[in-house]
Amino acid sequence: MDLIVCVKQVPGTTNVEVDPVTGVLKRDGVAGKLNPYDLFALEAAFRIREKTGGTVRTLSMGPNQAVQSLRETLAMGADSAVLLSDRKFAGADVQATSYAIQSGIRAMGGFDLILCGKQTTDGDTAQVGAEVAEMLGIEHATNVSEISEITKDSITVTFSLDDVLQMQKMSLPCLITLEKDAFTPRLPSFRRMKAIKEEQITVLTAADLPGLEEKRCGLKGSPTQVEKIFPPEKNSDKETFRGTSDELSETLYGLLKAKKFI
């Protein structure tokens, strides 16, 4: 079975602020980390490989630093990794991101199953997996919490749909996104990290992707555009209390009582 896991390097912190005076984004220079939700997709792929044999390849898009996250996937047990990195991909929205990723997948040759985390911790859209699947012309399932069977041409998965659990059998090739905690992810191995060979990681630019339409990439290929960024509105209708803990707990008690919560 040929498995591809899509991963993303996300900021190590979500502590981003807008300077209220200048409107400039303030972001600490904290190192990136592997999107935590991707760990469950990686683990699912490793377990499938243990059963069926085959390879697990990881794919990411991002700046050169994202190689670090790909090395982590190799240390966990991936066979090889591909990074799509080009300024032409910058400013991509969901559609342009998905387009670049599906171009990368096409360049990687055949596959039986693509696995993704259910979302990232920075973009939080949870949409890229499904768009990639549509662009590749395959079906998908999101938020998969269980894989009960995998054969050479099908996979049986369960996911939560509002108040029911739906179990369905899907034809391969297809794409699934994994729910958090679907599996307990393994840790990267220090021994494997030491043994990583440079040739296990391939960096591809836009020019390396056959048939890529540049007008569908990056900001240019993004139908949605950020008009403005701004700090969130503050609640103007508010009261702040300070004092000793006795005073504060008394005020809080009185407030809850006056509002009939107790």
Binding site: V94, Q95, T125, Q127, V128, E131, E134, H140, A141
Partner: peptide, 23 residues
């Protein structure tokens, strides 16, 4: 933005090449 909506909307948006903004 239910599980169903978040699965269906991106598939359709990709097909008709529409902009999609989550949440």
């Amino acid at each position: 933005a239910t599980v169903l909506g978040r699965s269906l909307a991106p598939k359709v948006a990709a097909r008709v090449r529409a902009g999609l903004t989550a949440d």
